[in-house]
Amino acid sequence: MSWILRRLDAKGILGFAILAVVVLCAVAAPWLSPLDPNAQDLASAIAPPAFGGGTAEHWLGTDRLGQDVLSRIIYGSRVSLVTALAAVAGSALVGTVLGMIAGYFGGFAATVVMRLVDIVLAVPFILLALVFMTVFGPSLLNVIIAFIAARWTQYTRIAYGLVLELREREFIQACVAAGLTTTDILLRHVLVNLAGPLLVVATLELGFVILIESGLSFLGLGTPPEVPSWGGMLQEGRALINVAWWLTTFPGLAIMLTVVGFNFIGDWMRDQFDPRTGSVRPTEIGSRD
């Protein structure tokens, strides 16, 4: 772990700090949130934030039903994080496996996989997600499945290209010549060499899922209304944007900050894996005889 700390730059620190706050909110939501996110209090509905003329009871104000905005934002981080992690893990798994098979074995397998990628890429993602959610109904699980169905191609394309190059490297041939099984070679030597670039893609995708999930919730096709989510809050607050700016501003900020945080981490990791700027894998600077 120490090398991570040593190599952190401003962007990295900021990214990890934002991620830490979001994770803390998601994990410790019941203790951190001042009120029950679903407790309705119509008497104090549409109360402005504490610094905007409201009371200290609702720091970031309340919505139409008198629900505490801060509490809902804290609980909303759970939806965003869980969706993001599950969707990215799923699509990375599917995409990497298919990309490795296509790249390593080539031939018919490559044709099938890569043409499938072309087909999925030809359909606009948001359209695919909308159709999917309309058919199967809005739920967290369906958001995750829709995302996996569309975004696995990101990993497949990158894994495919990298494996094509790796396969020609002498050490992969040396592994075959040493009598290792194909499974061992793929898992221990090919996959591990792909890990860096794919991890960078995955980090950037995390931010993207959060945006997509919010977008779908905003369109009413994401999470059901009783589950507090950032996108859902935006949708509810939209009608009152003229009278209660805090209903859309704070969830919007939460989305923006989280996405920016993930993108910072992704950028930082890309720099680390890039031989020209980074230092995770020093290039051939070792002394030669």
Binding site: E170, F171, A174, V176, A177, A178, G179, H189, E284
Partner: peptide
């Protein structure tokens, strides 16, 4: 391979993972 017949490759810079 590797047990009864082993091979040493030309390019030591790239023959190791």
């Amino acid at each position: 391979r590797g047990k009864d017949i082993a091979m040493i490759f030309q390019e030591p810079m790239t023959a190791l993972d």
